[in-house]
């Protein structure tokens, strides 16, 4: 007799366990541990037979299940009666997991932006007129890195990273940036690199920028994902924080 097995892809051991519990139509508070363990191991064998990489997480759960199964076979060590059900070890994580699955589907049922509901979009043309207005969006590290990559690609096309003895230290560049911001006020990210010539210098400038952002001496803003990133000094004028 041949079986055709349809393998569902499970996200992890908890996902698989939950599936087995539903499939067997058993109560999560009274899991028939022997049955479920056998089916779980069968499933892992099937995955292996199909050359699917069985992640360590699945094996961990397998050993937990086998351990619980063996505990349940052994008679309780005491007669106190208050012995904890060994199955709690998987019941609680499963409950929590189910709970968050439920919340996830509740979240997904909300009126999601750009799926169910839409806002007005201000055109990039209009946005230019608001230059100098309050910053609109905090820039994340990823946006900053993307922008850096664009600048390097534009100015030094086809360049590859090479490591050389450094000519510029991050500290020097940091001081340079601080001085510039003090003299000229806010600048665009692009302008920060205007004097840089080779890739290592770009990188040192970028590291110096990250350092300054990290220390909270510079604020970085980008009105929209397409527009130029602005750097705004946030150290006080008397230079108290200037000597970095």
């Amino acid at each position: 007799m041949e079986y055709e097995v349809k393998l569902e892809i499970f996200e992890g051991p908890l996902d698989l366990l939950l599936h087995l519990i539903h499939k067997n139509e058993v109560d999560i508070f009274d899991i028939p541990i022997a049955t479920v363990t056998d089916q779980y191991l069968e499933y892992l064998d099937m995955m292996r037979a199909l050359n699917i990489n069985v992640a360590g997480d699945f094996l961990m759960m397998a050993s937990t299940l086998v351990h619980i199964k063996s505990k349940m076979l052994l008679p309780g060590p005491t007669e106190e009666g208050e012995e904890e059900d060994p199955r709690v070890e998987i019941t609680l994580p499963l409950l929590e997991y189910m709970h968050f699955k439920e919340i996830a589907s509740e979240l997904s049922d909300r009126e999601l932006l750009d799926r169910d509901v839409f806002t007005r979009h201000v055109s990039p043309y209009l946005q230019d007129q608001f230059k100098g207005e309050d910053p609109q969006l905090d820039v994340s590290l990823f946006q900053l890195m993307d922008a850096f990559k664009r600048i390097v690609d534009e100015r030094l096309p086809g360049v590859r990273l090479k490591f050389q003895p450094h000519k510029w230290s991050v500290k020097e560049k940091t001081e340079l940036i601080v001085t510039r911001l003090k003299e000229r006020g806010p600048i665009f990210l692009n302008d920060l690199f205007e004097e840089d010539r080779i890739i290592s210098e770009f990188i040192v400038t970028f590291l110096a920028l990250l350092e300054l952002v990290h220390m909270g001496l510079i604020k970085v803003f980008q009105p929209t994902s397409q527009s130029d990133i602005r750097l705004i000094p946030s150290f006080d004028e008397n230079g108290g924080n200037g000597d970095v």
């Binding site: 996200e11 992890g12 051991p13 908890l14 996902d15 992640a55 997480d57 759960m61 994580p93 929590e96 997991y97 968050f100 699955k101 919340i103 996830a104 589907s105 979240l107 997904s108």
Partner: peptide, 28 residues
């Protein structure tokens, strides 16, 4: 679905460490 579940956990449990998220989801 995985992203939604992860977001759900973080939304409720923040501030949260990756380790704790992985404990709740049982996967990397």
């Amino acid at each position: 679905r995985a992203a939604l579940e992860t977001l759900a956990i973080i939304a409720y449990k923040q501030p949260i460490l990756r380790q704790e998220i992985e404990r709740l989801r049982g996967v990397d």
